Simulated scan of single mutants.
Amino acid sequence: MRRLNLTPRADWQAKAEQVGFVWHSAGATYWDESAAYVFSLAEIEDDLEPAAAELHQMCLALVDDAVGDEALMSRLAIPGENWDFVAESWRRREPSLYGRFDFAYGAGGKPRLYEYNADTPTSAFEAATFQWLWLEDMLASGALPPGTDQFNTLFDDLRDRFAQIFPDGGFMQFASDAEAVEDRQTVRFFEDLASQAGLETAFVAMRDIGLNAEGQFVDGDGFVLKAAFKLYPWEDMLRERYAPNLRGAAVRWLEPPWKAVLSNKAILPLLWKRHEGHPNLLPAFFEDDPAAASLGGRYVRKPLFSREGANIEVHGAGLSEPVVDEGYGAEGWIRQAYEPPPQFDGRYPVVGAWIVGDKPAGIGVREDASPVTKNNARFIPHIISTE
């Protein structure tokens, strides 16, 4: 794995906006094609792809354990009144669309799991579509040698997964914050995929979803939700005023409720306890576990729930950058061994490995100026070297 400096396309901003990628520079540079990360085929086929596939299966086994164990459900900060709702979703094997593992990777080592974005992972559009369009342009212009490839079947796999989940088509509503440009455009991307898979779609703002007199979820026009994609995390939904109605409403959610087990950092110590020494895991413990002392004074403190690096604290590594405090941590904390990403030209890349259904489907790379990947990190395209 290496970082290759490149010349950006002169018209890349116009091309981004033409396909709906309007948050490419929102507030700061987000999409950055002045460089690309170069992987060998062996790094993809022998390291990243099998790591994602194996960790996915380990996570599914953890869900199977957790839904039958009240102590684990409590550790996972799932409200007790929703345990049956989550467990029933798993026992029915309600299908999952996608997820993203975030890895430290480089310097000849194995991918090491930082966290699993199992419920509302973002950057799917830029990983699936815009970095592929970038590759096609770079090949057409001769800026990259013929045969240069990407690990990227994400677009086709997501479309096909919608068709697998809904083989008879039907109608599906797509929900997010209507005012957040990135969220809204990301949901448009998924709407388009679902349409290509034969579904009829409509958008509903999360704030406009309500309950009718029968306790069913309805959109702003009063139409009952039967199937819905939501870019809104389960940890919040399970704490909303409408949470008591979730179990009886018969909505087919993407992601399904059992993803509440996997969409928080409590899985990191739980996975480590079950698979201690696994080459793709970092040692991790709940903060109140005496075994956490084995990490010494050099570790990363993470709240069970957070987004974009918020409230993540690096201890004992001499970093001076302040913690981004967004109020996370009320549900608890874990400690994970400190293993920073490799550094290239003063940037720290984290590799996001996508799972669609049960299949590894590609990668996207985000890099930050610090070891903690935050909301101002840049998305950098990647290639597989032909050398």
Rank of each mutant, 00 (worst) to 15 (best):
L6W: 09
R9N: 09
D11P: 13
Q13L: 14
A14S: 04
F21E: 10
H24W: 09
G27L: 00
Y30K: 01
E49L: 08
P50I: 03
A53I: 03
C59Q: 02
A61W: 02
L62R: 02
D65G: 14
D65A: 10
V67K: 00
V67P: 15
G68Y: 06
G68H: 00
D69G: 15
E70K: 13
L72H: 13
M73K: 07
R75K: 11
P79Y: 11
G80S: 13
W83H: 05
W83R: 04
W83M: 01
F85E: 01
F85S: 14
F85R: 04
A87W: 05
Y98W: 07
R100P: 12
F101C: 04
A104W: 08
A107I: 00
G108Q: 04
Y116M: 13
D119A: 06
D119R: 12
S123P: 12
A124K: 10
A124P: 15
E126K: 05
W132P: 05
S141P: 08
A143H: 03
L144F: 09
P146I: 05
F151Y: 13
T153Y: 01
L154F: 02
F155H: 02
D156Q: 15
D156F: 00
D157N: 14
R161L: 06
F162K: 05
Q164R: 15
I165E: 01
I165C: 04
D168A: 09
Q173L: 09
A175N: 13
D177H: 15
A178W: 08
A180E: 02
V181G: 12
R188N: 14
F190I: 05
A194G: 13
S195H: 09
G198C: 10
A202S: 13
F203G: 05
V204K: 12
V204R: 05
I209G: 12
L211K: 00
L211A: 09
Q216H: 08
F217K: 03
V218E: 02
V218I: 12
G220P: 09
D221H: 10
V224N: 05
L225C: 04
W234C: 10
E235C: 05
D236L: 12
P244R: 03
L246T: 06
A249P: 00
K259H: 06
S263H: 04
L271K: 04
W272A: 06
W272P: 11
G277F: 01
E287A: 11
D289H: 07
P290H: 02
A291Y: 04
A292K: 07
A293K: 13
S294V: 01
L295M: 08
Y299A: 11
R301V: 09
R301H: 14
R307P: 03
E308G: 03
G309W: 00
E313K: 15
G316P: 15
G318P: 08
E321L: 01
E321F: 07
D325V: 07
G327S: 01
G329N: 10
A330P: 02
A330C: 06
W333A: 07
Y338D: 14
P342S: 15
P349C: 09
V350H: 00
A353C: 03
A353Q: 02
G357D: 11
P360R: 06
E367G: 03
A369Q: 03
N376R: 03
I384F: 08
E387T: 14
